[in-house]
Simulated scan of single mutants.
Amino acid sequence: MQELLYAAAMAFVIAIAAGPLFIPMLKRLKFGQSIREEGPESHYAKAGTPTMGGVLILLALVIPSLIFAGRNPEVVLALFVTFGHGLIGFLDDFIKVVLKRSMGLKARQKLLGQIIMALALSYIASIYFGRGTDLWIPVLGASVDFGALYYVLIFLVLVGTTNAVNLTDGLDGLAAGTTTVAALAYTVIALYFGKPYLAVFCVALAGACLGFLRYNAHPAKVFMGDTGSLALGGALAAVAVLTRTEFLLVIVGGVFVIEALSVIIQVISFKSTGKRVFKMSPIHHHFELSGWSETKVVTVFWLAGTVFAAIALSILAVSRAGGI
């Protein structure tokens, strides 16, 4: 399908071409990243690096998506959810970076925005698109109708995915690289479920992230900020919902899941026993403090993301072989 190649190439080129214009603008506006004091000492040198670079990813994503798949309602909905989360992240970044309020948006404000996104996605998908309230179960290859519980699950999928990607965005290129792999996997998944326009959206997302890596790989010239990480999580969650593969997303995004679980485990352990399981969470910092270089951690996590994506696609292949 030529549209897939065109969309990926266009997103990649836009991200590459816009970088030299956008990044200096962020510097002039003094949108510099602050580094938390309790983080690894090696990160202190990153203070002042421009953030909110997620705007660059969104720009590179939306143009090819609209050109090659903009007439498809599901793609429009996916873009709405992506940009909705990007707006939440932008406001959070703006408050922290520009207004110098370290806490950013209040938790209830973020939650309200995510509830709105979840309700819009689940209601429109299930009612107007006829998606229903069933979920496809990996391995079994069967669909199960969750009824009213479906709407709760979609909220958990959105909140869980966006926060997991946000937690993963802690090293140069880590979130952008793992999202590239996940988006490519979902390109195949969308095609498998007969949704070529969503595949265009996914491959454009991969191209945008890959182009952004030109400036975000170590040593990063720009960070995506919450603007980018929340948007990327929203994009992946939206595609999972629209393809009925919410449970498969747990496998495709295995790295994101591990990152989130490491934080949960650390908090529970420290509050209950006063001891830490990891030297620092999220888990990528644990490996840093164990002596791994930042580039080694990122490379290994990219490879892990590729393995998880391959496992997910293998499940699809088994389902097809079994006539599911």
Results as ranks from 00 to 15, higher is better:
188 V>A: 15
188 V>D: 01
188 V>H: 09
190 A>M: 04
191 L>D: 08
192 Y>E: 13
192 Y>Q: 13
193 F>K: 10
193 F>P: 15
193 F>I: 01
194 G>H: 07
195 K>H: 15
197 Y>Q: 14
198 L>S: 07
199 A>H: 07
201 F>A: 03
202 C>P: 14
206 A>H: 05
210 L>N: 09
211 G>P: 04
212 F>D: 10
212 F>E: 09
215 Y>E: 01
216 N>E: 03
217 A>N: 12
217 A>D: 02
218 H>Q: 02
219 P>R: 12
220 A>P: 15
221 K>I: 00
221 K>N: 12
221 K>A: 13
221 K>Q: 14
222 V>N: 13
222 V>Q: 13
222 V>A: 09
223 F>C: 11
223 F>R: 10
223 F>M: 12
224 M>F: 09
225 G>K: 09
227 T>S: 05
227 T>L: 06
228 G>A: 05
228 G>S: 05
229 S>G: 08
230 L>P: 04
231 A>K: 03
234 G>T: 03
237 A>P: 13
239 V>H: 09
239 V>I: 10
239 V>S: 09
239 V>A: 08
240 A>R: 08
240 A>M: 07
241 V>A: 11
242 L>Y: 09
243 T>L: 01
244 R>K: 15
245 T>E: 14
247 F>E: 02
248 L>W: 11
248 L>Q: 11
253 G>I: 06
253 G>E: 10
254 G>W: 09
255 V>I: 13
257 V>F: 12
258 I>E: 03
258 I>D: 00
262 S>C: 05
263 V>M: 13
263 V>H: 14
263 V>R: 14
266 Q>W: 04
266 Q>C: 05
267 V>Y: 00
271 K>A: 04
272 S>Y: 06
273 T>Q: 02
274 G>W: 06
274 G>C: 06
274 G>Q: 03
275 K>V: 05
275 K>Y: 10
276 R>P: 02
276 R>M: 07
277 V>W: 07
277 V>L: 04
277 V>A: 08
279 K>M: 15
279 K>I: 12
281 S>Y: 02
282 P>D: 04
282 P>A: 05
283 I>R: 07
284 H>N: 02
285 H>N: 05
286 H>F: 07
286 H>M: 07
286 H>V: 00
286 H>S: 11
289 L>P: 08
291 G>F: 10
294 E>V: 01
294 E>L: 00
294 E>S: 00
296 K>V: 06
296 K>Q: 15
296 K>G: 02
298 V>H: 00
298 V>C: 01
301 F>C: 08
302 W>S: 07
302 W>H: 06
302 W>T: 08
302 W>F: 07
303 L>M: 14
304 A>H: 03
304 A>W: 11
305 G>T: 09
305 G>L: 05
308 F>M: 13
309 A>E: 01
315 I>K: 01
315 I>C: 04
316 L>I: 14
